[in-house]
Nucleic acid binder design. Structure first.
Lengths: 342, 342
DNA sequence: TTGTACGCGTTATCAC
DNA sequence: GTGATAACGCGTACAA
């Protein structure tokens, strides 16, 4: 292995001067610098970043803890995080939680801290009480932590999507296209996001003076399979439903299939709106109207925020950033009645 | 920050003894060990893994380089890698290539090596000539590298799925269900996997004495959108096609939509088989017959193999491991005619 | 069984 | 502008 010493010897200087040349923190004369660069080139020297981290107390590692990476949401967020990490010169340490609800936070976090990470991005979906580990006292001893997709809480830095507003977009669009009995297939209600979307559905209907009773709601588990079952359940509860807002696109896939099996024509017999705008949603039959969240952007912002907290620890104060989702209109909902066009 | 010195002082011993207690490489008397553990507990000491890596010349980092993490295949493989990494005590360093075909391999790899990774898993799909950087001379200077999803090559350690065999499963199933004019919608042919699946299609038809001419093939780009276009193209080339083997499930989604738009009933008018067994495939309309690859398992094996190469560098020799895919029969193909049942 | 001294590769400090 | 020296936190010969 080639070290600074070898380079220094080859260039006829001291190791310190080599370091100064590389970091640029102290001036080095043009000609010695040229000699050093030449020696580096000839020897193929690369600085050992581990050693550098040790003395600098800055590893340029950021840990990402997430789960269900084969789902659309988490993978999209991770992509955004990685893109920004590359931009800012960080390497990503990836940890996956197998069961987000009973994660062994303690061992995961302490291991990452022992690795010397500069910051942590916690992108595990909020399920049940799985963020209770992060007490104020514990966080004080940790590097900066940015939370993604979590309920707002004072003192926490959180990057979020406005799930209620997304639900409102979906429900209001259904109302605009003439629907009057609007059901909801929710995600599991121990998930914060599922509760938010349910609340958004409920509030929008209340504002419009439409029904929002419990028999208009069925509960799924995010999977296509559960969407299928929930659709059957919902229609048996209330046969007069003319449209459904679904908690995510996966469940919408299952619901579409179930609707086909029942011989429904969509959107004529039943209008459907999903949530997430997964790539496939555009190619379902019929193409799915859905809510787009800028998850890639959320990932980028999360890493940028972690960087800010690392780089300027004194100025940085806990903050919350919320992204607004947007409506993507496709063929699983009807033409707008009130004034606009589809 | 608490270090060995603090612990040593608190326990009234020398730093070396603390280290011996932790690593267990030298015997320590029971009572001093008890004192040391107590001091560790009280101080909340955690060994600095960066410093340990520096002196041990073993970081327990493994780098994973992949791309398109929001696609099913790569994310599934990554999950498997991570699971096994956790099992064996490695931390994962994640790098994503934005454009796999013209990746800047040099800078990515050298950065990871400078980070002191013990091994590298290259899980970027083989596109064009994007592995040409890995010459024998370059690899000799690098930590062990395991390649995933690549064309076999002597001297390379590669974990693979048998794409040809998968294609054969698909085509033979179509033949068994009475299809005689079997088209293929391929992935982009600069991808090795796309070529393999095409070859498997061609060989299986040849063996069965059926047509496999070029007008039975249309080329897609893996996306649902391209599957839609390819289906129209294929049917305009050959109106007598009774079934299609598709290079992946995404394209099958698009093709299904296109078939619906043309008023086809599936599988009666057209039978379809996909490739990948993405979670949604079961909930398409109709549920999609497809080929399952054990990508999670492939990920696990890749990391295990990297570990073997790291741990036993002398015994380890380059090897290739190929997983056999399996057929998942659903409703997008008909009932088996020859002898079996669906 | 335990303490001492040094090395891992780098940067920071202090002289010159 | 440059060179010696110490230090980051840990492991490990070597000596005791």
């Amino acid at each position: 292995m080639i070290t600074v010493k070898h380079v220094a010897q080859a260039a006829g200087v001291s190791p310190g001067t080599v370091s100064n040349t590389l970091t640029g923190k102290r001036p080095v004369s043009a000609k010695t610098r040229a000699r050093i660069f030449q020696a580096i080139e000839e020897l193929g020297y690369k600085p050992n970043l581990l050693a550098r981290s040790l003395v600098n107390r800055r590893s340029h590692f950021i840990a990402v803890i997430t789960s269900e990476i084969d789902q659309f949401g988490p993978s999209r967020i991770l992509s955004g995080i990685e893109a920004q990490a590359e931009e800012l010169g960080y390497s990503l340490l990836l940890s996956l939680m197998r069961d987000p609800s009973q994660a062994d936070v303690e061992s995961t976090i302490t291991n990452l801290v022992a690795r010397g990470v500069d910051g942590i991005i916690w992108a595990v979906h909020q399920v049940g009480n799985n963020r209770r580990w992060f007490t104020r006292e514990r966080r004080k001893k940790l590097p900066p932590i940015v939370f993604v997709t979590m309920e707002p809480k004072p003192g926490f830095t959180i990057i979020n999507s406005n799930n209620r507003a997304g639900a409102a977009l979906a429900v209001n669009h259904l109302i605009d296209t003439g629907c009057r009995v609007i059901g909801h297939i929710s995600g599991p209600l121990d998930w914060w996001e599922a509760r938010e979307r349910l609340t958004g559905w409920r509030q929008s209907l209340a504002q419009a003076g439409l029904e929002n009773t419990d028999d208009l709601v069925a509960r799924g588990s995010w999977s296509a399979e559960s969407g299928e079952a929930a659709l059957h359940q919902l229609l048996s509860q209330r046969s007069d439903i003319d449209s459904i807002f679904l908690g995510n696109d996966q469940m919408a896939i299952g619901a579409l299939q179930a609707a086909h099996r029942r011989g429904y024509t969509i959107p004529h017999d039943l209008a459907l709106v999903g949530f997430d705008n997964i790539p496939e949603s555009r190619y379902l039959w019929p193409p799915l109207t859905t809510i787009h969240q800028g998850l890639f952007e959320i990932g980028k912002v999360a890493l940028q925020t972690a960087h800010d907290a690392i780089e300027y620890p004194d100025e940085f104060i806990a903050k919350q950033i919320t992204h607004q989702p947007e409506l993507i209109v496709r063929e699983s909902t009807g033409v707008v009645h009130s004034s606009g066009q589809a």
